[in-house]
């Protein structure tokens, strides 16, 4: 569901469908990478407390804001679009030389 997003290690995000680019903070990069790896949104706050010195209520608030922002940017709104399209159309995008 995130195949259209290319995220570099330094937090540069490229939406291959829209052509939009973003610069993410260190925690934003961490959270998006977790989502891209399949972490459920409800588990994000716990992952954040594991990786950063932050208490769970603050992490939960930050994650909520992050998810709201991601939705606001329409990064995930069309996540299922590809499912009903031509499966024979190769769309592999590796704009950072394979860094995902």
């Amino acid at each position: 569901m995130y195949e259209h997003l290319a995220l570099s290690d330094n937090g540069f995000l490229f939406d291959t469908r829209s052509g939009a680019t973003y610069s993410l903070s260190r925690t934003g990069t961490f959270l998006l990478r977790e989502l891209m790896r399949g972490t459920h949104p409800s588990d994000l706050a716990a992952r954040l407390t594991d990786a950063f010195e932050v208490d769970l209520p603050a992490a939960a608030r930050d994650c909520e804001q992050f998810l709201f922002r991601v939705k606001d940017l329409a990064l995930l709104d069309e996540a299922s679009d590809d499912d009903d399209d031509d499966p024979g159309s190769p769309r592999a995008a590796e704009p950072f030389g394979g860094v995902r």
């Binding site: 469908r17 052509g19 939009a20 769309r91 995008a93």
Partner: peptide, 26 residues
């Protein structure tokens, strides 16, 4: 397919990036 990244004052592309959108392709 390309999205313009910067424009001249006439609105012409002075930079852009290719996009891969299956709906646009279709």
């Amino acid at each position: 397919a390309m999205r313009k990244m910067q424009l001249t004052d006439k609105g012409k592309a002075w930079g852009g990036v290719t996009v891969a959108d299956r709906k646009l392709d279709a």
